[in-house]
Each structure stands twice: as structure tokens, then as C-alpha cells.
Design a protein around this nucleic acid. Structure first.
Length: 158
DNA sequence: GCCAACGTTGGC
DNA sequence: GCCAACGTTGGC
């Protein structure tokens, strides 16, 4: 059963266009337990991902990706030179996990946050909940479908 | 730049 | 186990 997720990235940290160039990337740097557990336990190969640009004007969904490698240790967590270094993590006892994702396709038109907030059929979407800041979060199949539709991808079946 | 919301830390 | 202090997220 394919599941659906949303992953946030600040455009100046890792831009959707970079994923288009790279084809795939490992989602390193998540240092939140709930998001880690989602990547470690729940995200499976083939699951679909909304790629969200946060902390920009306006925040928006830029494209669709899929999980291409399931949870494994985030090596940046034991790299002292990494911005994401965590002294409590080691190769023997990794504390943080990541998945790999692969770009599928850009939105025809980006779907921005005000648009999503104003769409009645996206009511209840976790992204839109007040105060939520999870960088990896679930999306219902219906909400995923609707965002694709708003982004001009209605001809495709997700 | 502001600040509300949230998660983590650490003293007790 | 509680909770105050602190740091971060991220929209505005």
C-alpha cells in the first residue's frame, strides 16, 4: 500500500531544482525524533512525497518525489565537520536516520500555502495545522491527490 | 525582524 | 516526573 508524505526543505538549504539535477538525494539532517521515527519505521520504497519549500515567500509545494531507499543511519550525525553533528551518535550506535528520495516530477504550477489554506478539500491536512513544524509528516491519499490537482497534474494517476 | 508554537534539556 | 529555561522552526 503506497503511503504519502510531505518533506520540508528550505530552498537555500536544498532546492527542488537541485533534486531534479541530482535525481536522488539522501535526506540528511533531520534531528527530530518523530520525523526520524517516520523515516525509520514507516516510509517504504515507492511511497510518494510532496516536496515542500519552507521559509520562503510564499512557502509552497514544488514537486513530487518518491522514496527510493528506506531508513538507514544518517552519517552526518557522527561527522564532526557537519553542521548536523551530534556527539551522541556514532556508526556503532546511530541516533539519526534518513531515507533517500528520487524526483518524479515538478508541479506544473507551484501550490502555495495560502492556496492550500483556502482550499476546503485540504481541511485537516497536517501541514496546515497551527504551530506544526514537523519536517517529515504524513499526507492522506486524498490530500495528496488534491495537491497534485491544484498543481496541474490532474491528468496523472497517483 | 518578530514572535508564537513547539521540542529538548537539565535541575530539582 | 515536573517544569522553567532555552533553542529552533517557520509563517508573517
Amino acid at each position: 500500500m503506497t503511503k504519502h508524505w510531505l518533506m520540508k526543505s528550505e530552498p537555500n538549504a536544498y532546492h527542488w531544482n537541485q533534486l531534479l539535477k541530482d535525481k536522488t538525494t539522501h535526506w540528511d539532517g533531520v534531528r527530530n525524533y518523530q520525523a526520524r521515527n517516520t523515516m525509520r519505521d514507516l516510509m517504504k520504497i515507492g511511497d510518494l512525497v510532496l516536496f515542500y519549500h519552507s521559509n520562503c515567500k510564499p512557502p509552497h509545494i514544488a514537486g513530487i518525489a518518491k522514496v527510493c531507499k528506506e531508513g538507514y543511519p544518517d552519517h552526518t550525525s557522527w561527522d564532526p565537520d557537519s553542521h548536523y553533528f551530534d556527539e551522541k551518535s556514532s556508526p556503532e550506535n546511530p541516533r539519526w536516520m534518513m531515507v533517500d528520495i528520487e524526483a518524479i516530477q515538478s508541479m506544473e504550477t507551484i501550490v502555495d500555502l495560502p492556496q492550500m489554506k483556502g482550499d476546503p478539500s485540504l481541511e485537516g491536512m497536517p501541514l496546515l495545522a497551527k504551530g506544526q513544524r514537523l519536517s517529515v509528516q504524513p499526507v492522506s491519499p486524498e490530500h495528496f491527490q488534491r495537491v497534485c490537482q491544484l498543481g496541474g497534474l490532474e491528468e496523472l494517476l497517483w
